[in-house]
Simulated scan of single mutants.
Amino acid sequence: MLIKEAAKSSGLTKKAIEYYIEQELIAPKILCNGYREFEDKDIEALKKISVYRRLGLSIEEIKEVQRDLSGSALKKFTLKKELKVQREELKRSMLEELSRGKSYREMEDRLRSLEEGNAVIDRLLDLFPGYYGHFLSLHFARFLQEPISTEEQKAAYKEIIEFLDGIPALEFPPDLQEYFTESTKDFTSENIHDIMKETKKSIENTEDFLKENKEIIEAYHKYKQSQEYKDSPAYKIEKLLKDFNSTNGYNDIFIPAMKRLSPAYNDYYRQLEIANEKFLKSYPELEKLYNERD
């Protein structure tokens, strides 16, 4: 079909279709007479593009979705929109505070902190694939809302941005990417928030957590030491992540800088260390396993 019929079938204007062709979102066949011929696959692509645009995706974001075969790009943009909604709510709250007499200087400082935190979160989403990037972004987002006021915090922020700008994006081999995508496809932001809440509870009340989950913990760690697990894609992904974090400076640069940047994260990290010490004290037979993993 020609562009007139394509417009009718897709529900788009001729001008919109021509724009999407110009932006290389679709590439219909060109006939000998110079007219474009639109096939069913082109109409389907136009309908998808229309939905993406109405949902607020930019041209570049749509291109990334088209290139992505795993579906992770759509999840990334979903999370970005979720975070954007949260930021807009914070800004609305700041406007309300201004209307009640809060100083513009204080709002300026809070806005700067919000923007600087957003820069870190966006980079994490772009660097780490799928669910893992989502988890890291939501995990660190709660620690990136504090004012960056001291010289130590400013230096730590600069170090974090330079680190995130300087490392390559993490990529899984095709077979592991397929497994990773399939095994995490049903995870949502709500699931991640639930995991973070449970983690917080476990490190704040470690003794109770260990008593209540003794059988589950023992079965889990027995499986983690089994040959079945060591032959699994999950083990390969865990090792790949560990190697990436170790060789690219995530453990030695990013985490220490985050602790200097955010007092709340520093407190959380210390609680995590204390909880881990209690865990290993309760399960000394696992200390060798953890040392090997470190």
Rank of each mutant, 00 (worst) to 15 (best):
I62D: 04
E64P: 11
E64H: 08
V65W: 03
V65N: 00
L69S: 14
L69G: 10
A73L: 12
A73N: 04
A73M: 11
A73K: 12
L74R: 06
K75Q: 12
K75H: 11
F77R: 01
F77W: 04
F77S: 00
L79I: 15
E82H: 09
Q86I: 15
R87K: 12
R87S: 12
E89V: 15
S93I: 13
M94Y: 09
L95A: 05
L95W: 03
L95G: 07
E96F: 12
E97N: 06
E97L: 11
E97K: 03
R100E: 14
G101Q: 06
S103E: 03
S103M: 01
S103G: 02
Y104L: 14
R105S: 06
E106H: 11
E106D: 13
D109L: 15
D109I: 15
R110P: 08
R112C: 06
R112H: 06
L114P: 02
L114S: 05
E115W: 02
E115G: 08
E115Q: 12
E116R: 13
E116T: 14
G117P: 01
N118C: 09
A119D: 13
A119P: 15
I121M: 04
I121R: 10
D122A: 11
L125Y: 05
L125N: 03
D126G: 07
F128S: 00
F128C: 00
F128L: 00
P129L: 02
P129F: 10
P129I: 00
Y132W: 11
Y132E: 03
Y132G: 01
G133D: 02
G133N: 02
L136K: 05
S137W: 09
S137R: 10
L138S: 08
F140M: 02
F140T: 04
A141N: 14
